[in-house]
Amino acid sequence: MSIVRNILAIIFTFSLMIILLISSVDIVAYHIPGYYRYEYTKYSSHDRVGMDMDELLRVSGEMMAYLKGKRESLSDISAKIKNQPDVLFFNEKEAAHMKDVRELFIAAIFIRRILLAICILIPAIIKFSRGSLRKVMPKNLLAGSCIFLTLLLCVGGIIASNFSKYFVVFHHIFFNNDLWILDPATDNLINIVPEGFFLDTARNIAAIYLIFVVGIIVFSTVLIRHSAK
């Protein structure tokens, strides 16, 4: 039975690590105050598309709501662009690409919910089987967290060595079309979120995830030492 409990603890740990990764993306995308204003200012995104900053932030808010499934379409979003009122912001190609991105976001949200249920259920199963959570969970949390920390550092180092290359690789992995290849001359989307925006975002996601994982390592280490006394 102890082998089964350890397997369950490993599943719990890996589920938690994935939850924290998805949550890190969610935090950067939705919960850092002023993040988009800062990034748009850094890359002069509002000037690139010829928009007022507040107007661009409004459009961005609609776009992010769409990605979470809180808006049905992007094709009806209009804005004042280059002093022209009521100009549709997204063309057909951009809207089609963002539909693909939306599917990824919604899938990630669904996966996180499933994994949360698993993380709630597994401790209950271990406890119900008269196992000791303090004996089973901390050591597996520590081992799993260290594995994910190592992976994070290795993958992060590889991506950082040539972000442009791996940015393209990412798109080839997650999209089965070329809609993501946008033209700054015709597509607003690439002008408001250039490659530098995604580099900054990837760094922030990695930093938040690193804090989460290190926190789990410290927490599990404290529990192990406390149980040993």
Rank of each mutant, 00 (worst) to 15 (best):
I10R: 13
H97R: 09
F219C: 08
I211C: 14
K165P: 06
E39R: 15
L74R: 03
R48G: 03
G215H: 01
S161K: 05
S24T: 09
V222Q: 14
L56K: 03
V136Q: 12
V4Q: 12
I18L: 13
F163R: 03
L142G: 02
K229Q: 14
K80D: 10
L149P: 04
F148T: 10
S220G: 05
G144Y: 02
P138V: 03
R134I: 11
F14R: 00
F89E: 08
F198S: 00
L67D: 06
G61H: 06
V214C: 08
I10H: 06
I111M: 11
D187Q: 04
V59H: 01
N140T: 00
I190A: 07
E103F: 12
D200H: 12
K42W: 01
T186N: 11
L67Q: 08
R102V: 06
F197G: 01
E195V: 13
F128S: 11
G61I: 03
D47E: 13
F197K: 01
L199E: 12
T13C: 15
E62S: 07
I19N: 09
E72A: 12
L199H: 12
E103L: 13
D26W: 07
T150H: 06
H31E: 11
G34C: 07
K70V: 02
S45K: 00
A228G: 10
K80L: 05
V87N: 04
S227D: 15
D86S: 06
S45Q: 00
G215F: 03
G144A: 04
L153T: 14
I106A: 06
G34Y: 07
L133Q: 01
I114H: 00
D47R: 14
S45I: 00
K68Q: 13
I19G: 03
V59F: 01
S227P: 04
